[in-house]
Amino acid sequence: MNQPDESLTSFERELTRAMRRVDPPEGFADRVMGRPDAPSVAARSKVMAKVIPMPRRMQAWAGGAVAATLLASMYFGEQTHLRHQRERAQLAQRQFDTAMRITDQTLEHVRLQLQQAGVEVGN
């Protein structure tokens, strides 16, 4: 800072007094030092990266592998869903066939009883 200027008007001197520097909030330096991008914190992150090393080529492959796993999961999930739908349709078809067979047998039994009773039933 320069020395106070004697040529300042009273208004300017008042302004200078009004604009004295102020302290930052308590713990400012600690917060700067604790930021993730602060040098000491970044250095600790690098140390952790060394503890669990992963070669750069492997990192690229890992990304690809994750994407492929997701796609495969989606494909197999869809296939499983279709298989379940097919199985449900087949079961319904079998139940329908059984019901029709029972109905046919019942009707045939009734027709035979009517015939024995001398009642003619037209086709």
Binding site: R21, V22, D23, P24, M33, P39
Partner: peptide, 26 residues
Amino acid sequence: MAIADDEFRGLIEAHQRMVFSVALRL
């Protein structure tokens, strides 16, 4: 030459009032 942690903290403490005041007034 990179700044060591202690030196960096010293710089913050020496100049934080000026830097913060400029930012606050603007």
